[in-house]
């Protein structure tokens, strides 16, 4: 049992990271911190892919002519793409946060909600632009 836990330590780490990231996204009201959480969450998935490509004792898949065990390079390549996607997401998210800060004057979710509520109310009264 303990062996099984320890031999799969990479999965435990990944699960912990994943839950941590999700928790941060859900619980933090600060928009930047949410993006940090999202990053942690995504990183855990990157680790999942990278670790599953690893073959114990395997080396990088470079053909040297000798019979060697290779790690599976495919997940690593996939994750390169995923990292790029992650960076783009982060950049876009941060850009949005900048614009939100410019229009609302805050990046705290609660304050934004309050000012949106009052805007909603004025919409219903029909005095919108």
């Amino acid at each position: 049992m303990v062996d099984a836990l320890i031999s799969h330590y990479n999965y435990w780490l990944i699960i912990i990271l994943m839950m941590l990231g999700l928790y941060v996204v859900v619980s933090r009201g600060n928009l930047v911190k949410k993006i940090v959480g999202l990053n942690i969450f995504q990183t855990s998935v990157f680790l999942l892919y990278i670790s599953l490509g690893k073959v114990s004792g395997g080396t990088a898949p470079i053909l040297t002519g000798k019979p060697e065990a290779f790690s599976n390079p495919l997940p690593h390549v996939l994750i390169l793409t995923a990292i790029v996607v992650g960076i783009a997401t982060t950049a876009l998210g941060l850009a949005l946060v900048v614009r939100i800060r410019e229009s609302y004057g805050t990046i705290e979710e609660d304050d934004i909600l309050i000012s949106e509520r009052s805007q909603d109310a004025s919409d219903i009264n029909g005095s919108s632009a």
Binding site: V25, L31, K34, I35, L38, T89, L92, G93, L96, V97, R99, I100, S103, Y104, I112, E116, Q119
Partner: peptide
């Protein structure tokens, strides 16, 4: 301006 928060929430 709510388009920004809408986009942000959708992004998350």
């Amino acid at each position: 301006r709510r388009a920004l928060t809408a986009a942000y929430n959708y992004l998350i």
